[in-house]
């Protein structure tokens, strides 16, 4: 099963992430972001950060999570390759793990609300987010 795919959009970056549960979907967005940003890793370091978010809806939770990741990547110059999360209702708690980065090739400006969709079909969760790059 694919973790994610990059879909067509004229100017920006549309990513669809898959998973057997929401935790996998959220974590797979991180994998997609690694492909997009093409970081030069500073391989001598491993980092781990705790993360906790509460939102009014599942859609807001996803955007808040991705926005938090984009913020942390930018201020810390880090890339997160996976998340160990627990999602209950509109709350999320866990850890993100990754490495320090020497530089990114591309930066992601933001996760947008445009055409945002989270759905479950035949035991598979998918979420589609358009990122401004």
């Amino acid at each position: 099963m694919k973790n994610y795919e990059i879909l067509e959009h004229t100017a920006d970056l549309k990513i669809r992430a898959y998973g057997e549960n929401l935790e996998k979907v959220f974590s797979n967005f991180l994998k997609a972001m690694v492909e997009v940003c093409q970081p030069e890793i500073d391989s001598s370091s491993l980092i781990s950060r705790k993360i906790q978010i509460k939102a009014e809806s599942l859609e807001s939770l996803l955007i808040d999570f991705l926005s938090e990741i984009i913020y942390l990547m930018d201020v810390n110059k880090e890339i997160y390759t996976r998340a160990e999360l627990m999602i209950k209702g509109n709350k999320l708690k866990g850890e993100i793990k990754g490495q320090k980065v020497k530089r990114f090739q591309t930066e992601i400006k933001a996760a947008t609300w445009h055409d945002l969709k989270i759905e479950k079909k035949d035991n598979l969760w998918t979420a589609t987010v358009l990122f401004d790059i």
């Binding site: 009014e56 808040d64 933001a110 609300w113 445009h114 401004d132």
Partner: peptide, 26 residues
């Protein structure tokens, strides 16, 4: 980028709940 994200995040529930404005795209 952060300023725009911050205000979008704040405005979505405000738009819907306080000001009862509907737009075709969030």
């Amino acid at each position: 980028h952060q300023i725009c994200s911050d205000y979008l995040r704040e405005f979505i529930p405000l738009m819907e709940n306080k000001y009862k404005i509907k737009t075709p795209d969030k």
